[in-house]
Structures are given as C-alpha cells and as structure tokens.
Simulated scan of single mutants.
Amino acid sequence: MGATKGQVADAVKGNWVDRAAPAWARPWLRLSRADRPIGTWLLLLPCWWGLGLACAAGSPATWQTAWIGLGCALGAFLMRGAGCTWNDVTDRHIDAAVARTRSRPLPSGQVTVRGALVWMAAQALLAFAILLTFAPAAVALGIAALVPVAVYPFAKRFTWWPQVFLGLAFNWGALLAWAAQTGGLTWPPVVLYAAGIAWTLYYDTIYAYQDIEDDALIGVKSTARLFDRNGRRWLAIFAVATVALLALAILAAVPPGPALALAMCAPVAVAVHLGWQMRRLDLGDPARCLTLFRETRTTGLLVALFLALASLP
C-alpha cells in the first residue's frame, strides 16, 4: 500500500520510484516524471544524435566526447524534471480536470506550488553546472533553450500545434551536443534538429490522442484534435519527413565511405520501425497509443546506434 500511495495513473506499473524510492522523495520524483522515464529518453536521444553525427562527420572522439555523452544524459534527466515541474505548475488546474492527470502531485495535493518552484530551480541549477563544462557555444545554446521550454506549457492555449513547441524544446540537444563537440554550428545539425521536430510531431500526436475527449471538454488545443479522423494521414507525413530530413542531415555531414554507409542505416531503420508502428496504430485505443508512444524510444536508439557505429575509427 505504501509503495503505491500517490501513484500517478499513467506511470509505468512497478516503476523504481513507487517500488524503491524513499516515501518522502516520491512526490518530488513523480513531479519530475522519474516514474515515467520515456520523456528523459526523448530529450536525451537528440543529444546523442547530434554528438554521433558530429563524430561521424570527422570530429575526433576524445575523453571530452565521452563526458559530453554522459553530461547530456545527466542534464536530460535534470532538465526534463525541471521542465515537467514547470509544466505541472502552469497546468495544475487543467490537470485536475483530466482523468489521466488529476493524480499528479500538484493537482492531488502531494506538493505545493511553492515547493514545486523551489524543486524546479534546484534541478535547473544542477543542469546549468553541467552545461558550464561544455564549449562556450554549447553554453549559449543551453541558455537559449530556456525560451521554448518556458513557452511550451502555454502553447496548447493559443495554437492547435503545441507539438511544434514541444519539438523545438525537446530536440534542442541535437544542436547543443554538436556545438559541444565541434565548438560551433553548421547547417547539418540544423537539419537534424528539423528531423527531430518532425519525429516529435509524430510521437506526441499519438500521445495526444489519449486525451482527445478531455481536451475537447476543457478547450485545450492539440494536433490530435486538429487532425481528428485524419490523424493517420498526418502521422504518415510526419514519419516520411523524419526519415527524409534525417537522411539529408547525414548526407550533408558525413563524407563518402564506410562511415556514410553505416550512418545511412539509421534512416532505413527508422523507416522500418515507424512503418511497423503505423501498422499497429489504433488512434481510438488510448492504451495502444500509450504503448506506441513509449516504443518511440527504440526509434531514437536506432539512430543513436548507427551514428555511433559510423563514428568508430
């Protein structure tokens, strides 16, 4: 009973927070979505894409490269936690009106707004300390990333495309990690960033179909509500855009040779995996939508794997 008290409705059952974390820490870890690690993966993987593409493009891998990869992992955990805390502070009244989210720590009363803001600041400051170990260009990009992070929670109030703002925030790491490895930016990581945004439109639209009825009742906008019964067609467009932009970024960055051949396996693998997902898709089944959303981690890992292989000497 004690382990499941306060459990969030859409958390993974038997997750480490509910099973092993101290009771006093659980509300704060739930506020950071530590009981739902998929969001950390989706924030981290574009970082590893940018780092892998930079190395495959010819930037030599060093011990600093290893630290960039690890630092991005730690930073993704912390900044996803800070971003989710901010999102829950701004959305606490909306979350209280939606069945899937009313069990979150703020609407359920497990934490206070003041406590949540202090927790958000603590996570952001730790992430900033990690950021300061990167190249100056990466530090500047990390600070600039606060803009889309701050705007995203409000996007559903003024646009039917809040998933675009999520994509702008969640894929910023592709730019940051490239800059941390190379010391600056060129246009291939920008195309990679665009591929990540298309990917986010794909997976977060699927996620939004879980809440389409509640969102309609309370007036929250989303691409799921905008597309309605045309969702499958739009998801196919986003999937094709993801594959095409990923391939373009790789072709622009990686010189001809074995590295390019390995790197180009990434868009092929993504095309196969997204096609497999589309065959299983049922936008009228919230449980299936959540399952497919969580499986998007595999899509991102395939890209990271082939870019890492392409960067080997």
Rank of each mutant, 00 (worst) to 15 (best):
C84I: 01
C84Y: 02
T85V: 10
T85E: 06
W86G: 00
W86D: 05
N87H: 05
N87E: 05
D88K: 10
D88T: 12
V89S: 14
V89Y: 01
V89P: 05
V89H: 11
V89G: 11
T90C: 09
T90L: 14
T90A: 08
T90G: 07
T90Y: 08
R92G: 00
R92L: 03
R92I: 07
R92A: 03
H93T: 13
H93S: 09
H93W: 13
I94C: 06
I94L: 10
I94R: 03
D95M: 01
D95H: 06
A96G: 14
A97D: 14
A97R: 11
A97T: 12
V98F: 01
V98C: 10
A99W: 13
A99Q: 12
R100Y: 09
T101M: 02
T101C: 09
T101I: 02
T101F: 00
S103W: 02
S103K: 03
R104D: 05
P105I: 04
P105Y: 04
P105D: 08
L106F: 06
P107K: 02
S108N: 04
S108V: 04
G109F: 09
Q110L: 07
Q110W: 05
Q110D: 08
V111R: 01
V111A: 05
V113M: 12
R114C: 03
G115A: 05
A116N: 09
A116H: 01
L117E: 15
L117I: 15
L117M: 14
L117F: 11
L117A: 13
L117G: 11
V118P: 07
V118E: 14
W119M: 09
W119K: 11
M120H: 10
M120D: 08
A122C: 15
Q123S: 09
Q123F: 10
Q123A: 13
A124Y: 12
A124M: 12
A124L: 14
L125N: 10
L126R: 13
L126P: 13
L126A: 15
L126S: 13
A127H: 11
A127P: 06
A127K: 00
F128H: 14
F128L: 14
F128V: 14
F128R: 07
A129K: 09
I130Y: 08
I130P: 02
I130A: 04
I130G: 03
T133I: 05
T133N: 11
F134S: 02
F134R: 03
F134A: 11
A135S: 08
A135H: 14
A135M: 00
A135C: 04
A135D: 13
A135T: 07
A135V: 04
P136F: 07
A137S: 13
A137N: 10
A137R: 09
A138F: 02
A138H: 02
A138P: 05
V139S: 08
A140R: 10
A140E: 06
L141R: 00
G142D: 15
G142I: 10
G142S: 12
G142W: 09
A144W: 15
A144L: 15
A145V: 03
A145F: 05
L146Y: 07
L146F: 15
V147D: 11
V147R: 08
P148S: 00
V149H: 09
A150G: 15
A150S: 15
V151S: 04
Y152V: 05
Y152D: 01
Y152F: 03
P153G: 08
A155C: 03
K156T: 00
K156C: 01
R157W: 15
R157Y: 11
R157E: 12
F158A: 01
F158P: 05
F158G: 06
T159L: 06
T159Y: 04
W160Y: 06
W160S: 07
